[in-house]
Computed example of a mutant assay.
Amino acid sequence: MDRMSPDLGTVQETLLIPLYARAVETRKENALLRDPRAEEIVASLDYDFRRFDGLPSLLGSLLRTRLFDRWASDFLGAHPEATVVEIGTGLNTRYERVDNNLARWFDLDLPDVIGLRRNYFTDSARRTMIAASVTDEEWTSEVADTAGPYLFLAEAVLPYLPETDVRRTVDLLADRFPGSLLALDTAGPGFFDTQEDHDALGKVEARMRWYCPDPGQLTDWRPGSEVLASHTLTSLPGPLLAELPVPYQEMVAAITAQHLPQAEGYRLNLVRLT
């Protein structure tokens, strides 16, 4: 079978890191999560994934995904017929993992990513791909035509934008979808300043551009907004940690004991926007 070369922009290439993490994890006996579609996609791509083999940050990517999955599941548990928007969807498969057969989903990303994504996924009555930049207001009209409430998931996306674009995105979501939830990651001290030495980012050209030492900054931008949760990879919610296979619980405990600046400077956040 001929493999496809992913023709992606510099930042967009980073989507291949979590894709590979999920594919590799799926093959393990006691997997943190399973994603057979990721395995199929990796096998079909002509790309040197070996550069990411054995990297510790793949575990971080998986833990982040598990938390975002949990937030999505909790949201749909409370609002079964709500709308979920994956901002910077990449080749993510959260829909396959947590969809409840009732919710409306949108997969939003830049045209080159959606072009690649369409080789593996198709639109349906409840799931639609949108090729646009998150900072463009036009895409919000299609989402606004669906029923709320709304959950926006921006996993490994916003830190790669300049702060002006992040602020524009937050304002856009808050203005068009007041009361919506936004899940996002932020890069602060110990992480943002060590990107060149990061085990995975050091192997690609993309670099994070938005420095955010305190997620509370978002509530300064939008008074009345609220940070509902903020976790480092070493301070994940107890119920989520308890669900992990024992070897992974031990790994997280070992990382926690080391007080690594990179682990402490990277946060996963859930914000209510007003």
Rank of each mutant, 00 (worst) to 15 (best):
A144T: 13
L172A: 07
T122V: 13
P189S: 04
I130R: 00
D185F: 13
V166I: 10
V166P: 10
P162V: 09
D175H: 14
A200N: 08
V134N: 08
W210G: 05
W210M: 03
R167P: 00
E137N: 07
L153H: 00
R207K: 15
L201R: 06
F152W: 11
L173R: 03
A131C: 05
G202M: 11
D175W: 12
D165L: 08
M208N: 01
L153P: 00
E196T: 14
T135E: 09
D185A: 06
G188P: 07
V170G: 04
Y160Q: 06
G179D: 13
A131Y: 09
T122G: 03
R176H: 11
V166W: 10
R167M: 02
V166E: 03
L151E: 04
S133F: 03
V204K: 00
R167H: 01
P189M: 04
R176D: 03
F177P: 02
S133N: 11
V134I: 15
M129T: 06
D165T: 03
L151W: 07
R209T: 09
D123A: 12
E163G: 00
A187K: 00
P178S: 06
L158T: 13
A144D: 11
V204N: 03
T122W: 02
E205N: 13
L153G: 03
T164N: 10
Y150C: 13
R126Y: 02
T135M: 04
L172D: 06
D185P: 08
E142C: 03
C212F: 05
T194Y: 11
S124Y: 07
E155C: 07
G188S: 02
Y150T: 11
T140K: 02
T169Y: 04
E137A: 15
E137M: 04
A200T: 14
E163M: 12
F121L: 15
